[in-house]
Design a binder for these strands. Structure first.
Lengths: 168, 168
DNA sequence: ACCGTATCGTTGCAATCGAAACGAGTTCAG
DNA sequence: CTGAACTCGTTTCGATTGCAACGATACGGT
């Protein structure tokens, strides 16, 4: 009677537990073979799509704070998976891009990552999957309207289709 | 044509981003007023339901590793929200329970936490919500069958209804 | 009773984290 | 041309993290 509160049915808790479990399972794939952190994996993934970009760009796209991106890039550079080059037009910027080795290692991980994802996706009926993604987008919308919530990152907004896009 | 991989549509990434955003929004509620971490919040929540329990018990129930629980309890004890008592029958165990102050602070936070959750839940049609929870449970089942995934915590298993329970 | 094994809670330690500060570079108003 | 304001990437620093030991207690076979 004091306060009836069940942690195990509390939405934020449930999301956190599932997300962390999935994330940890995935990190087995890129942490076991090659020695990558979540941040490094995300940086590689972003670079594989966007070519040569700045730290700022990555920071705004993959939900990692600036220092984390900076350090992840440093470690990746030390391992030879990534190269930094100065930008002529703006001396502050650094153009970061994948090396051949980085591309190779990423190409090696992607199928394993996709396999983990596929096992999850294949267990769900397509229409249920659609519902889930729609709901996740609605939850983001709720947070978009909440001044106390951290704003969404750029890339996650860009990924929206017109059907699911809000405001705009 | 290297490897076509979209981070922004990758399920583990999407889960991580949403979960982290929700979690961070929630932590505003118990971090701003009182000064609690996620671990401390979970410990309080568990104690509010389970009375006097051991560190081990909490550890197995709320998805926190043992040292984290131990340290969270220490901080909570230092703030007077929790009290530790030796157990007669087993000298290794410590019985942890809420103090009056701890109960009061928890009672103050719960409505705010529920408000955050409610805003999310109210945005979704009931049948869609049911689908989402069912899918989340299916994903847990997939991970339960995966030897490379970390096992699920006790309380999260206990929370299952017979309708959704797998194996057993 | 005794010793090996298991469990409980804590602590040590190295790595990581996040927020703020920093230096270098750029922009632009005056 | 100058200097204030801004941006970019890095670094600093205190706090937190996860993992692996650790001391202490309990149990079980002999």
């Amino acid at each position: 009677m004091p306060t009836d509160f069940h942690l195990s049915t509390f939405l934020p808790y449930r999301l956190a537990v599932l997300s962390e479990r999935v994330s940890r399972r995935l990190s087995v794939e890129y942490g076991r073979s090659h020695d990558l952190s979540v941040a490094e994996w995300r940086v590689l993934a972003h670079l594989s799509r966007c070519g040569a970009v700045s730290v700022r760009e990555i920071h705004g796209c993959v939900n990692l704070d600036k220092p984390r991106v900076s350090r992840a890039v440093s470690r990746l550079e030390a391992q030879g998976l990534v190269s930094k080059a100065p930008v002529d037009l703006d001396g502050r910027l650094v153009a970061i891009s994948l090396t051949e080795k980085g591309r190779a290692i990423f190409a090696d991980i992607v199928p394993k990552a996709h396999a983990v994802e596929r096992r999850l996706l294949d267990a769900i009926a397509p229409e249920d999957l659609a519902t889930v993604f729609r709901v996740m987008e609605q939850w983001h919308s709720v947070l978009d309207d909440d001044p106390d919530a951290r704003p969404r990152s750029q890339m996650d907004l860009d990924g929206l289709t017109d059907a699911t896009r809000r405001g705009a």
